[in-house]
Design a protein around this nucleic acid. Structure first.
Lengths: 162, 162
DNA sequence: CGTGCACAGTTGAAGCATCAAGTGTAGCGT
DNA sequence: ACGCTACACTTGATGCTTCAACTGTGCACG
């Protein structure tokens, strides 16, 4: 095929695209092997574990993990069957349902986090090296601004009430 | 949860992880909408389109698109049903099967490539800016070396015979 | 009030990915 | 020539993701 990108651009994109297939697979493999979790389901547990009260409305959780509500609902159903998350209504507002990390879920996160963090460090942080973490952050931020102009992906929860 | 990464590292990784969920989704959305293709199936067609003779052994194709042979086999089955790829035996070697891009498949790539390349440019290349393409390339390369130590992901095909 | 509409969430079906198991061919040693 | 292992796939089942359709709640407007 003809080049719609310059040679340099194409080379960088090819490599980047390869990373986009191989890195998630590698991280998923580690989590699956050691914890029986998907990267995504781990992220859900981790987000809940960091919020005060370990409780959050489904829709807020969905925006924090950048997923559709539908996907989150399916995943939380599975996590609920495992006993790691519990769902309940919200007193202040009849149409939100709250997801809460159970004690067993907390234990699961505590047991899983070190191994996962180590893998992230090994494959990403140490790979790019301390001098280039800032570059990575900047590049990721630049792409995010294009991909997610609405600027969801807030860093810290802002739930109140309930 | 406690931090297993420093604050800077964690911030960079969070953003990077967000890109890893949103960018593939955005690219898939464009391809699905405009061409009814997955990013992955497009990549398969594109790789075939660039190889001399538009023909390649399945296993070589698999390594070029960083996938398992199983995944590729399923995808090529679907592409074959659409009439974009044809499979056939290899004269020189009874256990390889060759995948060939049909004329219809070539037309499909030609019709699809510009829109896809434009989206890659818009969301990635232009986002990081010309001054940082080299950084992106370097970072992707560094991560690839960890994730794929075997060093597959060759840039150009090396098929001969058949 | 009550009608309409938007929001929050769930559910079922369909598609794609992954895993384990299977087929058939090459090449090697004896 | 025989079996043996390794390779190059293919296939079927299972699980996760996506999509469209549905339920039920809050809110605004007449």
């Amino acid at each position: 095929m003809a080049d719609w990108l310059t040679a340099d651009e194409q080379r960088a994109w090819r490599r980047t695209a390869a990373v986009f297939t191989l890195l998630p697979a590698a991280l998923d493999a580690q989590l699956q092997r050691d914890a029986g979790l998907t990267q995504f389901s781990y992220l859900v547990l981790a987000m809940l574990s960091e919020t005060p009260g370990r409780t959050m409305p489904m829709s807020e959780l969905a925006s924090m993990v950048s997923s559709s509500l539908s996907r989150l609902s399916h995943v939380v159903s599975r996590l609920e069957k495992q006993g790691w998350v519990a769902r309940g209504p919200c007193a202040d507002n009849g149409r939100v349902t709250m997801a809460r990390l159970t004690d067993a879920g907390w234990d699961k996160v505590v047991a899983t986090a070190p191994g996962h963090a180590a893998e992230v460090r090994r494959l990403v942080i140490d790979a790019v090296g301390p001098d280039h973490i800032a570059d990575l952050d900047e590049i990721a931020g630049a792409i995010l601004r294009r991909v997610d102009p609405g600027g969801r992906m807030r860093a810290n929860p802002l739930s109140q009430g309930c």
